[in-house]
Design a protein around this nucleic acid. Structure first.
Length: 422
RNA sequence: GCAGGUGUCGCCAAGCGGUUAAGGCCCCGGAUUGUGGUUCCGGUAUUCGGGGGUUCGAGUCCCCUCAUCUGCCCCA
């Protein structure tokens, strides 16, 4: 084939759209039940929003953004994640003046200029929730439980909840220094990336994938041991709430997260499944108490997460094909369409035959063959005879039994014999 | 940005320098112009991702390019 979609993008074709519809249908009730309201924001924003929101030092901003100038030379960027835009909208619409907490959810495409591989593409989809205005650990716990419930709703089972606290404005700078001091003597043995991180973002050293680096970090100080009293009590409060709620967590003091705006609680849902390729994180989030302020709003504590729908989709079974309930078999195109429309308006799905390109109308047997191919449960046969007498023959495609009834009784017949529409 | 793998019909796939490019599925048509699912018959690639080159001759060898996959980095 000559014509391809751009690298990293893909079409969701009819065989797969059902799965996506199912994903949305399954997830939406979970977040709604928890009181989150859907918000839809633009897929592109001012570049500056992401630079300030996500952080200048992050890879996302440095090398992964789809940035372009519009015809008025404004610098715009296809959103690489959802939180910055949601916070912007939250401020744009004065939602910060609503009684807290303000709880929002979103779902849609995100864009990151990366090399593609299993579980990673340039246009991908996320669902996420954000809770603004509550500081206590209870809202952290709720947010995490909603994530766990979402996985249950879509049938994803093999995952762990990794959890950590990386401290706040008070204690993080101090911890950063403690960490640097502890590592300083080993600095020359670290990988190049970690040597850079040492200056720019020391915490990121801790989740380096290099086994050699990890060796050197054995026994390195953990943020959990260096929390200020407030952060410590928040952390302990969260742990006991999650225990109370029966959410098993793995305390992972190496968990840091890539985005600058996180503080205190950070967590990831990590799946163990080869279908994800080398990827494993299906949902990630945390607290970002300074982001609203950073973007020009009032100081507002906030916590949320985003989950990758493609990755979740990889863990789900293929959806069942869609099949019409009935299929009209009739030599007269106008009569066939008329009958099909009547059936459809009564709430039953109905298909009929259309001649292929360059072909002549299909004969009786061929139309029945089409009916069979679509998987229809019933054929509504209206040949010359039936048309004459204002009748229709209803044939079960399952057992071949059939009955000839007046057309007026067709809807009643379907209502009686076919329970749930479809 | 880096490292490997792959690219022959809508899908799977043979072919590995020599006249007209297997096969299967799907699709289309017929056997069967009022009864499907089985079966049988027939049809569908001037062309092998694209461009150069080597050769009497290339899908088959070489070079470049594009796309795709897997991994690194990073992330959902």
């Amino acid at each position: 084939m000559a014509i391809q979609p751009p690298r990293g993008t893909y079409d969701i074709v009819p065989g797969e759209t059902r799965k996506w519809q199912a994903l949305e249908a399954l997830l939406c009730p979970v977040v709604s039940a928890a009181g989150y309201k859907e918000i839809r924001t633009p897929v592109f924003e001012h570049t500056e929003l992401f630079k300030r929101g996500v952080g200048e030092t992050t890879d996302i901003v440095n090398k992964e953004m789809y940035t372009f100038a519009d015809k008025s030379e404004r610098s715009l960027t296809l959103r690489p994640e959802g939180t910055a835009g949601v916070v912007r909208a939250y401020l744009s619409h004065g939602l910060s003046r609503q009684s807290p907490p303000v709880k929002l959810w979103y779902m849609g495409p995100m864009f990151r200029y990366e090399r593609t591989q299993t579980g990673r593409q340039r246009q991908f989809h996320q669902i996420g929730i954000e809770a603004f205005g509550s500081e206590g650990p209870a809202i952290d716990a709720e947010v995490i439980v909603v994530a766990v419930d979402c996985m249950a709703a879509v049938g994803v089972k093999n995952f762990q909840v990794h959890l950590n606290s990386i401290g706040c404005r008070q204690c993080r700078p101090r911890f950063r220094e403690i960490l640097k001091e502890a590592i300083a003597s080993k600095r020359q043995y670290l990988c190049q990336d970690c040597q850079d991180r040492f200056e720019r973002n020391p915490l990121r050293m801790l989740d380096c994938k290099s086994p050699a680096c990890q060796e050197h970090y054995q026994g390195a100080p953990a943020s959990l041991d260096n929390l200020c009293p407030d952060c410590l009590s928040h952390w302990q409060g969260l742990l006991s709430l999650l225990a109370e709620l029966g959410v098993a967590v793995v305390i992972n003091e190496r968990l840091v997260r890539g985005l600058d705006y996180y503080g205190r609680t950070v967590f990831e849902l990590i799946a163990d499944d080869t279908r994800l390729g080398v990827q494993s994180t299906i949902c990630a989030g945390g607290r970002y108490d300074y982001l609203v302020e950073t973007l020009g709003g009032p100081p507002t504590p906030a916590v949320g997460w985003a989950a990758g729908l493609e990755r979740i989709s990889l863990l789900m079974e293929p959806a069942q094909a869609e099949t019409p309930l009935t299929f009209v078999v009739c030599p007269s195109a106008p009569a066939a369409l008329k009958l099909a429309c009547a059936v459809r308006r009564a709430g039953f799905s109905c298909e009929l035959d259309f001649p292929p390109q360059g072909g002549s109308p299909r004969g009786f047997a061929r139309q029945l063959q089409q009916a069979n191919k679509t998987g229809a449960a019933w054929s509504l046969i209206q040949g010359e005879d039936e048309l004459q007498g204002g009748e229709v023959t209803v044939k079960s495609m399952k057992d071949g039994s059939q009955a000839r009834i007046p057309v007026e009784k067709l809807i009643a017949f379907l209502q009686e014999n076919c329970r749930n529409g479809v």
